[in-house]
Structures are given as C-alpha cells and as structure tokens.
Design a protein around this nucleic acid. Structure first.
Lengths: 210, 210
DNA sequence: TCATTTTATGAACGATAATTCATTTTCTAA
DNA sequence: TTAGAAAATGAATTATCGTTCATAAAATGA
C-alpha cells in the first residue's frame, strides 16, 4: 500500500462523502429532518441504503455534518470580513452583502438552516445539535463586538450592542425567509441596501424628528 | 334529552378538549412535533390514549388546532388595534406592545409557533398547515397597509411598505427568539422601546448623518 | 488470470408510535 | 335500582423506518 494509492483512495472516499451530503441537502431541504428517510437519500445519491452507514454513523450524524460544514464555511468568511481594518460601519455593510451572496448561492442549505435555527428539540440533549447552536451564538458575539466598536468610534448610537446585533440579524432572517418562500425568484442581494438603510437610518421620516 | 342537559354535555366536552390542548401545548413546546407521542400527551392530560381520538382526528389535527386557535386569538387582537383611528405610528407602537404582552403570557405556545413559522414541510402539501401560513401572510399584509398609511401621512420614509413590515417583524422575531432561549427570565415587554427606537430612528449616530 | 482484500448492497431485524376497537366504566333517566 | 346509552380505555394492530449484516461485487496486485 504505497502513499500515492492511499491518497487517491482518500480523495475518492471524500468525493463520495460529498456526493451523499449534496443529495441529502436536496432531500432535507424539501422535506425536513424527520420525514426524510435514509432510503430516499440513498436513492437520490445513487447508493445502496447500507452504504450511507460507511460514511456516516447515523441519520443525525449525516444531518449535522451537513449543517456543521456549511456553517463553518460561512462563519470563516464572516469572521474574516469582521476582522478587517475597515471602519465598523464598512465591515457591517460588507458582511451583509457577503451573507446575502452566500445565501443566494446555497438556497437549499438555508431552507434547512432557517428551520434548524428555531428547533428547540436538540438544543438541550444532543451534542451534535449543541455544537451548531454554539456557532450561532458565537456569530452574534462577533457581530456585537463590531457594534460595540461602532459605538466607541461614534458611528453608532449608544444602544446595547447585543440588541443591535439581534435587530440586524432579525431583519436579515426575515428577508431571507421571505426570499426562500417566494415563488417568484429575485436576487436576494438586491435587498442589501434596504436592510442597511432601515437598520442605520430608521423608518421614521427625517423631517418629523426632533 | 332536554336542552339544559345537552348544553352541559357540550360545555364539558369543550372543557376536556381545552384540557387536552393545554397539555399538548406543554409537551409540543418541550419536544417539538415529531418526537412528541400521543401517549405522552394523553399521560400529561390524564386521559387514555384512545380518548384523544374522540376529540381530534389525528396527531396533526391536534397540533394544528392548537396553533390555529391561538393564532386566531392574537390575530383578532392585532387587527382590532390596527383598525383603530390613531395615527399609523401610534398603532404600530400599540401593536408592538400588545404583541410582546401576548407572547409573554403564552411562552409555551410561542416555542411551538416560532418553530412552525420556518417549517417548510407542510406549507405545500397539508391543508391544515396551509391555513396557518395564510394567517401569517394576512398578518404581514395588515401591517404593510398601516406602513403604507404611515408613508401617506408623512410619518414614515417612502420605502416599500412590505419591506418595512418584514423588517419590523424580523426584529420582533429575533427578540422573541432570544427571550425564549434565555435561561435568565426577563420581561419581554422591556424590549418594546428598543425595537421601536431602532426601527424608527435607526442605529447610526445622528450627528454623522447628512 | 486469480486469490485476497476492500467496499457496496438491500433484505431482514427490531423498535417505535399512530391509530383502532373490543371491552370496561360511567352516566342517564325511568 | 337498573337497563341501556355514551364515553373512556389501553392492549393489539399495523405501518414505518433506522440500522445491521451476510452476501455479492469490485478493486488490487502478484
């Protein structure tokens, strides 16, 4: 068993694994976790049912691997953007656009993710589910930090940074959800300015303010 | 069988039905739809398993009846408030407070509802689920109308009223979600002013704006 | 080519849970 | 008090999957 052979085997193994994950993504997105069966995923991936278990320990393991790997990816992108040396406001703007672009590229995944966000069932018991919820929290924390910097530098009003982060994330989720259920497809990125405008300037008419 | 007898029977039937719904609310809120079993609900409600089927056609029927009746209730309250003769801004403020109060009074229910919002599984196939999603849509429509009036009367910036509605609802959901998962209980109503302030005035510091 | 190892397969197993229904319990009213 | 009606019950039925595993197929390398 020489090294080159090992390497190819490994590559092929991972390629098949990715194949299964991609099929699972489509099925889970369409039907949700419980109604999806392992046989359906196997059929969609063109593997035998038993084969899935060579690649994943269980249905839950498959599901969480799927989510975890994508969340890891978007988190890396966002964190990189938030760590840049721009002004806080610039960083918020860039992250917003980045996120909308990523979501647009991963429609199926975000159907799963948005459901997962509000699934209380696992949060307590499952270790796998817990890991994902921790990543969500850490994302809010990173965003809160930038808000705090924005306040410190006089760019943002002196409100609670965590509240600000929740407000922005809430708006984003709402627009993403709307985009996901909309029968008429439109570019999600086109909502970037709207979100930014409402978040930064508010909805009340300027002239009325004192 | 005289009328008075009939009436009492009916009252008792409905009382038991409500008893079951209230037990189901607790169990579904803790574990979600699929992991909850009919026997568990029966045990919690102190009825036999078979008895539940005298009151509800199926598990789904029980679940959707639960959601539908509460959504109906909050929708009635919100619609009443939105139809008042106040200025649009006043109505938005009042609805916000009203909603937070209602949610605070119905914690268990909103754990179910928030999960349900983003469950794509039913939206298409099930008639029962469809009814609920229609009520969500009609709520957004009612809110959009008030936004439109607010713009017409010069109280709000001339943005897309539907976008404005989604932005506000998104922020509300975000704060509700946070409140639901928070281990330390705090009054949700205390967030009313924060939400209102961010939504109306925005997060950007006044002095910086041109 | 062929013996050996690795990988894939899907039928069979076992567990779970929604629903039903024969039986029991409770209620009704004469 | 009691026959008959109505309601409640939970064990039995049935169906559905997640998972396993004995077997088959494919890959390997001599």
């Amino acid at each position: 068993m020489e090294t080159a052979g090992m390497k190819r085997k490994e590559r092929e193994f991972l390629a098949r694994r990715r194949e299964i994950l991609s099929a699972a993504e489509r099925v889970f997105a369409a039907k949700g976790f419980f109604p999806t069966t392992m046989s359906e995923i196997a059929r969609e991936a063109e593997f035998g049912t038993g084969t899935l278990y060579k690649y994943f320990k269980s249905k839950e393991d498959l599901y969480f691997s799927l989510i975890d790997e994508k969340v890891e990816e978007i988190n890396r992108l966002v964190k990189a953007e938030l760590d840049k040396k721009n002004s806080p406001l610039e960083r918020i703007k860039n992250v917003l656009r980045l996120q909308f672009e990523f979501i647009e590229q991963n429609r199926d995944f975000f159907r799963i993710y948005i459901s997962e966000r509000s699934r209380f069932e696992w949060t307590v018991k499952d270790d796998l589910g817990k890991g994902i919820h921790e990543k969500m929290v850490s994302y809010i924390e990173a965003l809160s930090l930038v808000m705090k910097q924005g306040i410190g530098e006089g760019e943002l009003e002196a409100l609670d940074p965590v509240d600000l982060a929740h407000a922005l994330v809430g708006m984003v989720n709402s627009f993403v959800f709307e985009w996901l259920i909309s029968p008429r497809p439109y570019p999600l990125v086109s909502k970037t300015d709207t979100v930014l405008k409402i978040f930064l300037r508010g909805a009340e008419r300027m002239e009325r303010r004192r």
